[in-house]
Amino acid sequence: MYDAPAAVAAANDALWAGLRDRLRAAGLDGVPDRLTRGGSYADPWLHPRLLLAQTCGFPYVHHLRGRVRLVATPVYGFPGGTGAERRSVVVVAAGASFAHVADLRGARAAINDPGSNSGANLLAALVAPLAVDGRFFSSVTLAGGHRESLGAVATGRTDVAAIDSVTFGLLSAHAPEEVAGVRVLCETPGGPGLPLITRGAATDGEVAVLRQALADVVADPALAESRETLGLVGIEVLGDEDYGVLARYAAEAAARGYRELS
């Protein structure tokens, strides 16, 4: 889920090599040489041979829970979260006059995907208490990705977007030109970050091997540079009850009459 720009992809490759070797040494079968890239990021989630993937928390609580197994949740050191909890940053154009969330009433919003927790669900949780007759923004545009949302705000095509704080941190560190035209207005409510998952048929033993290999990788001094590039500082093992807050945000917004981001 976090694989850009190029420096980040290279760091992911280095971490995967460390994981791959540990998983093979532990006796797991079907461990690939390289990470799978290309196609929809959602394609692997329900694949019967899935070994390890990262998903968004909102799809997890809505249609993956009970069909895949939670392995661990990465902990990132970027602003916008504590431990495995992450918040999104609400960005506006650098020169925009918005000072408070309430000032965004009637503004044009961009979202990366309507099923995104960071780009849509947490933004809805932020503005739902301020909605009137189920509306807050004048329009909502589907940008297709967080980087595209940033570009839409920076160039004035839209006024506001919620950006995953890990994405924002990675771009700030490795592609600062992509965030130069925006400023952070505030942060959304928080929730558990993007979990690593494996196939639903994985055994307890396989899940334990995956967790141990991840713990070893985040502690390996030889991989410190790659972890620093990714902002990765640890992992936490969370359960369904931890991710339930994301569904509650959507339910609370709907109870206020704010059933979809609008």
Score class of each variant (00 low, 15 high):
Val92His: 05
His174Cys: 02
Trp16Pro: 04
Leu122Ser: 14
Ala6Asn: 11
Pro114Gly: 07
Ala180Cys: 06
Val209Asp: 00
Pro221Arg: 03
Val89Gln: 13
Val209Phe: 07
Arg227Phe: 09
Ala202Pro: 03
Gly144Leu: 11
Pro195Glu: 05
Leu123Asn: 01
Ala4Tyr: 15
Tyr60Thr: 02
Ala7Val: 11
Glu85Ala: 14
Cys56Arg: 15
Glu228Asn: 14
Val132Pro: 03
Arg20His: 14
Pro221Lys: 03
Ala253Gly: 06
Arg22Cys: 01
Thr55Ser: 14
Leu214His: 02
Leu15Ser: 00
Ala25Val: 05
Arg34Pro: 11
Leu142Asp: 06
Ala247Lys: 14
Leu171Tyr: 13
Thr36Tyr: 10
Leu196Ala: 04
Ala154Glu: 03
Val184Met: 11
Leu35His: 09
Ala14Gln: 15
Ser138Cys: 07
Val127Leu: 04
Arg49Lys: 15
Pro129Glu: 09
Val160Asp: 02
Leu126Asn: 00
Val166Lys: 04
His146Ile: 01
Arg37Phe: 12
Arg248Leu: 09
Ile111Leu: 08
Tyr258Ala: 09
Pro74Val: 00
Phe136Gly: 02
Ala125Ile: 02
Glu228His: 14
Thr188Lys: 01
Ser149Thr: 12
Glu148His: 13
Ala143Cys: 11
Ala162Gln: 08
Tyr60Gly: 01
Val31Arg: 04
Gly239Ala: 14
Val140Met: 00
Val89Trp: 10
Gly115Ser: 10
Asp133Leu: 02
Leu261Arg: 14
Gly239Thr: 14
Gly18Cys: 10
Phe98Thr: 05
Tyr258Arg: 08
Asp220Pro: 01
Val101Gly: 02
Arg259Lys: 13
Thr73Glu: 04
Val8Tyr: 06
Ala93Met: 07
Gly151Arg: 10
Ala161Ile: 02
Leu35Asn: 04
Gly81Thr: 05
Arg67Leu: 01
Ala42Met: 07
Pro59Val: 04
Ile197Trp: 04
Cys186His: 14
Phe137Lys: 01
Ser40His: 13
Leu185Trp: 06
Asp3Asn: 15
Phe78Glu: 00
Asp3Lys: 08
Phe78Ile: 08
Gly115His: 11
Leu46Thr: 14
Arg108Phe: 03
Gly156Pro: 05
Gly239Phe: 09
Asn117Lys: 03
Val237Pro: 00
Val179Glu: 00
Leu171Thr: 03
Asp133Glu: 15
Arg135Glu: 13
Leu223Thr: 00
Tyr41Thr: 09
Ala201Ser: 15
His62Tyr: 10
Leu196Cys: 06
Arg22Leu: 02
Thr188Tyr: 12
Arg65Phe: 11
Ala93Asn: 14
Arg87Ala: 11
Leu194Pro: 15
Gly95Ser: 01
Glu228Val: 01
Thr198Val: 07
Val153Trp: 07
Leu122Val: 10
Ala120Val: 06
Arg183Leu: 00
Glu260Ser: 10
Arg135Val: 07
Gly66Asp: 06
Ala124Glu: 14
Arg105Asp: 00
Ala124Tyr: 09
Glu178Asp: 15
Asp103Leu: 06
Ala180Asn: 02
Arg24Ile: 10
Leu150His: 01
Glu241Phe: 13
Ala10Lys: 15
Thr167Trp: 09
Pro114Trp: 12
Val166His: 11
Gly18Gln: 09
Val184Gly: 05
Pro189Tyr: 07
Thr55Phe: 04
Gly81Glu: 09
Ala17Phe: 08
Gly38Val: 10
Gly144His: 13
Arg20Gly: 03
Val184Ala: 10
